[in-house]
């Protein structure tokens, strides 16, 4: 236990890095995901194709490979960035198709009559999407979206293997010094992750119930 107390500042610093990775990549993935989702339902065929290929390719690439590429291949191509930024880029790219799919399934979940009604009173594609379909879709999208972000919190741990000193890397550093208290250290780190993921999970479940009642 004393290994945890002694090294608490290291854990806190790592936790800060984890949270900032989560915040930056989460924001980036959300923006990128919305763009991809819009492209995927747009009237223009080539946009749909591009977005579909992007989604399929990124979703089927292991995260380790994405971050490996960001950490080793990008610098090789003369991209001179901090490893933190590289990891944030990797996580953003990796998470964006999942955001896009969550949004798209929300749009698909809006009853077809809603869109028909919007179209029949003469709204355009943009109008019916932004004033009729999206406001309803967003509600259904929020719980799965929260689940995507929970996964992102957990995924930041992979960045720890690629030169970003976040929580996972902090754990490894501390373990190197205090090999005698591995269990306590790892449980402490797990607690940090659970502090974020469990409340988010509860929030998603609670929201899901409310949405279900509303519909």
């Amino acid at each position: 236990m004393d290994a945890v107390i002694e090294n608490f500042p290291t854990f806190l610093a790592g936790f800060g890095q984890t949270l900032s990775l989560f915040a930056i990549a989460g924001l980036g993935a959300f923006v990128l995901g919305v763009i991809v989702a819009t492209l995927r339902i747009s009237p223009i065929a080539s946009f749909r194709t591009i977005a579909t290929i992007y989604t399929e390719v990124v979703r089927n690439t292991p995260l380790t490979l994405v971050l490996f590429g960001c950490a080793f291949i990008l610098p090789y191509l003369d991209v001179r960035l901090d490893f933190f930024v590289l990891a944030a880029i990797g996580l953003t790219v990796y998470t964006s198709p999942f955001v896009a799919e969550a949004i798209r399934s929300g749009v698909n979940g809006v009853p077809i009559g809603q869109a028909e009604a919007a179209r029949s009173i003469g709204l355009t594609f943009g109008q019916s999407l932004s004033t009729v379909v999206m406001p309803q879709a967003i509600r259904m999208v929020i719980p799965p979206l929260i689940n995507v972000f929970i996964a992102l919190v957990k995924n930041t741990s992979v960045a720890g293997a690629f030169f970003v000193v976040e929580l996972f890397a902090a754990a490894r550093i501390v373990i190197n010094v205090r090999g005698d208290q591995v269990i306590a250290i790892l449980l402490a780190v797990a607690a940090f992750y659970l502090v974020v993921t469990i409340p988010l999970g509860q929030l998603a479940a609670a929201l899901e119930k409310r949405v279900a009642v509303l519909r």
């Binding site: 969550a102 259904m140 689940n147």
Partner: peptide, 14 residues
């Protein structure tokens, strides 16, 4: 109804 299985929540079955 499964929390944590992301992206599966297509609420209607079109």
């Amino acid at each position: 109804k499964v929390p944590g299985v992301e992206g599966t929540q297509a609420i209607t079955m079109q």
